[in-house]
Design a protein around this nucleic acid. Sequence first.
DNA 1: CAGCATCCAGTTGGATACTG
DNA 2: CAGTATCCAACTGGATGCTG
Lengths: 138, 138
Amino acid sequence: MVTSRAAARRTAARAAYLTSMAACPTHRVLDRMGERWVSLILKELACGPRRHGELARAVAGATQKMLTQTLRGLERDGLVARSVTGSVPPRVEYRLTPLGASLLPVLAVVTEWSERHIGDIDAARAAYDAGTPRERAR
Amino acid sequence: MVTSRAAARRTAARAAYLTSMAACPTHRVLDRMGERWVSLILKELACGPRRHGELARAVAGATQKMLTQTLRGLERDGLVARSVTGSVPPRVEYRLTPLGASLLPVLAVVTEWSERHIGDIDAARAAYDAGTPRERAR
DNA sequence: CAGCATCCAGTTGGATACTG
DNA sequence: CAGTATCCAACTGGATGCTG
């Protein structure tokens, strides 16, 4: 049937696009940086090495699971280094690698833009939300 | 019981933290930029105004739903402007606002870092993945 | 053409409990 | 102390069909 062929073609096109998108460096990095706890952890580690427990306290909103999971991801990408000394009790320390440190200026640029324009965004939101119920008195 | 009190305290602390994090400008912006289709749409609109259908073709991986949803979000934040002319057939055009355009340099910084270091990341991943099965021959 | 509504699968992330 | 494992609720995003 013609219709299902067209649908299949669209699906295929999407799959191909999805693949190429997954390979896009910018998207991959943005994906990581956008993860819920990444920017917080990066900022904390920017101040110096931290033990697991210290990070847990500093980033109090994250559950232990998410903290570990996020750190593993950052470690895998070579942004964070993990070192263990002693095994009872274990003493684990996380610190930024040079690669991770090189990301800080980028984060700083984002931060600067954000703090400068968050007011504009909030204003736009307020305006949008106020005007949106346009059907209200129809 | 003591235990449940401690648990409650932790939960409360988390809730408070979550709130303050949601208010953090950097986190809010990173959240948006990290959304699946935002960077693609922004890059496409950087080239000039686009109609809905044009965007749909350019960002072929997104479903119509996600495209509209993402555009609405960007519009609400004042990053993108939407203008309608005619209603049958409708002609809708999206373009960057000055605020949205001011975000492009930030995106460019991220892009530059990403393209420069994606190789390092991939290398780190390969090394990590190769070394991880450390228990393999135990 | 642009977009909304509905349904639904897959993923994310939180709570909890246990181990070396 | 650091980390793993399990269970499960909530959200995200995709497929599909309908409207002005």
